[in-house]
Write a protein that binds this DNA or RNA. Sequence first.
DNA 1: ACGCCCACCTGGAGGC
DNA 2: TGCCTCCAGGTGGGCG
Length: 279
Amino acid sequence: MPELPEVETVRRGLIPRLVGRRIVRLEQRRRDLRFPLPVRFAQRVEGRTIRAIDRRAKYLLIRLDDDNTLITHLGMSGRMTLHDAASAAEHPFDRHDHVVFETDAGWQVRFNDARRFGLMLLAPDEAIAGHKLFSALGPEPLDDVFDGAALAGRLKGRRTPIKAALLDQKTLVGVGNIYACEALFLAGISPRRLAHTVQGERADRLVAAIKKVLHRSIEDGGSTLRDHVQPGGELGYFQTRFNVYDRAGIACPTRGCDRTVRRLVQAGRSTFYCARCQR
DNA sequence: ACGCCCACCTGGAGGC
DNA sequence: TGCCTCCAGGTGGGCG
């Protein structure tokens, strides 16, 4: 589920319920996710007030008032659910509700992650930029300074297919398998094209496409979310209609194109594209 | 240094 | 119904 737009949607959904609130209780229902949960997790979080919730790449950064940050990643299957007291009573925990937060306003946030590829870590604010998980990350695609020239520079000399380069968080962050496919389709670029050949106008087009698919998806998530901020509501759960992703064998959506969407496997991941519209 | 491939873990879908 | 195989939105680490 979570690429940048989904993480951003979760962030925006959590802000009104969490920022400025004190965490009165943290229940840890399992010892580890991808990594062991922080030692003395509950003791270090209970009583803290949340100052802000930021995002870097696909990480949520929950800022606590003791200058520590709760770093959260949703992995492949992580979600957050929101419950008021009545809703919490109606929804018993399931086996994948791993961490539960309760605020002084009576709201409960559950981190649920079936596959447990997600993570939660505590780190001092000032240690994050230099943290192993963060130090090699590429630029944020939605930053104004990220343009075609910036992408072209990061693709220079790289002899891997452009699709694989887009998934590499050192190239840029936030793009995952769905939006890599969708952005390449919008830009009319073959997923097999070698990354270093995406320069100049082609890189401009690709950056425009990346920004467009991410923005559009955030807007969709946001609009869905407005209806979803209700007890029992799940954050970041929405489905846009994709042009190519998961549409193998279905007609290419380009007007006048008679081809069907094809699937191929690159670096172990499915790629969906139109062989006629993407060069 | 770089590119490729696997492992991590669970659940859902589809075939027989 | 049950069992098997394949597939899934991420990414760190190990290999050549």
